[in-house]
Design a protein around this nucleic acid. Structure first.
Lengths: 249, 249
DNA sequence: AAGTGGTCTAGACCACGTG
DNA sequence: ACGTGGTCTAGACCACTTA
């Protein structure tokens, strides 16, 4: 059996250990067995155990310190990578019913800002899609997404209220590897207010994001504006591994 | 010379490579030399080069793919770990003049929420400090921080407008290892409005954070409310390494 | 003093991308 | 076919914690 198709051992090991932890296989113990013990138990080298530990540490599941066994932190359910890019997948993962209403779809020349964000050559065109996103029929977010033409054509061919735009891209072979997120607060403009049903000037949570493929080529750039009280963004960072930055607006 | 006090080789190597990249030592080249070449050039093993590369990748400086040289991304100035915890350090790093005005300092019994956040035993006391933070005399953020008693005593002994509260803790031997951040938007209450000088009900960017030491013991929990347009939070995440999560508020 | 994780080495094989 | 990064091994030494 097994027949591991391609996934490296350290990843399966990390998942096995994560499962063992949440299944309570280590009981109420707050500490993991030593690296040497795990290496022997699972029949791998200590290096592989350490790679798996790095995974768990990055997920915020454990901490580590020289001289002591690794400590198990409270079970922090982490999320999948695509949940951060796809509103639809995220909504399902938290047990809500996502919806979408397409406001506009345009094909037009890219603005200078878009040229830079998507790293396009001058006078390139883009698809620009505006959608109102809902949870259980309640408006919660206004999404303005810009796609390069090649990507956008896949999107433009979709049914108006097709819920996820990310899934069709993934099915079409587009690989999402990295995403940069910038989060701040802005005042609703009149368009935001009309579509979201809030007051002009009221505070919205804004997420701007840009996803790239393995070579670093941009796949999409989006500006999402959430009504307050709908979502929070949480980040875990450790000394020496700091994916989060605070910048001057 | 050198006399590296304690910092591991792979870290200094990562910094050397980062410096070489931003100094333009690789010219306009978009690719890094191969791991083998770097190992030879710097006189270390390939494993150490890979550890350094992992650092750079975590900072968003480079990408990698099997079969190709690593790609240098646009110079993304990353930030130090403490810049995320210390408003003062952050302000200096972006060339602004930080200030603080202490509003209140209390020693009191912890609320149930605080007991949980700081993992204190029942009927423990805490220090609760409220400060208005400024940039160049402009109010920008209201900070409400809760400290366990042992930590808070260091803080309470400080001069009223001592600017950084984190630096004295670090000097006192407190080690910050991990921080969780939760970011969303809230409406200003009357207290926020009065102190920050905005209107009640207007939108604020809220950051709640909790820092822990190497063993996972909480050092402080804080709720910071920023006026819009002052800061943005940016996160970089890669497939397989997802420190960011979006949650239902 | 013993055990632990942190670091580093030297070598190996493989999957992938490019020429 | 070749070079690249991805994975894995086996062993070593060190810094630190705990007893």
């Amino acid at each position: 059996m097994e027949g591991s198709p391609d996934v490296p051992r350290y990843r399966t090991l990390a998942n096995e250990l994560a499962a063992a932890i949440s299944n309570g296989a280590y009981g109420a113990a707050t500490k993991l067995p030593s690296e040497a013990a795990l290496a022997k138990q699972y029949g791998v080298s200590r290096g592989t155990v350490r790679q798996a530990m790095a995974q768990l540490r990055a997920r915020g599941t454990i901490t580590s310190r020289r001289g002591t066994r690794r400590l198990i932190l409270d079970t922090a359910p982490s999320q999948g990578f695509l949940d951060l890019i796809s509103f639809t997948r995220w909504a399902h993962s938290v047990g809500e019913a996502p919806g979408a209403r397409t406001i506009t779809v345009e094909r037009r020349a890219a603005t200078p800002a878009e040229l830079e964000q998507l790293r396009l050559s001058a006078d390139a065109e883009v698809y620009f899609v505006v959608r109102l996103r809902t949870l259980g029929r309640q408006p919660v977010m206004l999404e303005r997404t810009t796609y390069p033409i090649e990507i956008g054509e896949t999107i433009a061919g979709l049914n108006d209220d097709a819920r996820s735009h990310v899934d069709p891209l993934v099915s079409a072979g587009v690989v999402f590897t990295d995403t940069d997120h910038v989060i701040d607060a802005v005042a609703a403009n009149s368009t935001d207010a009309r579509i979201l049903g809030c007051e002009t000037g009221s505070g919205l949570l804004r997420e701007r994001r840009r996803s790239t493929d393995p070579i670093g080529v941009p796949i999409l750039a989006s500006e999402d504006r959430f009504l307050p009280g709908v979502v929070t963004f949480s980040v875990h960072n450790s000394a020496g591994l700091t994916p989060l930055a605070r910048r001057r607006a």
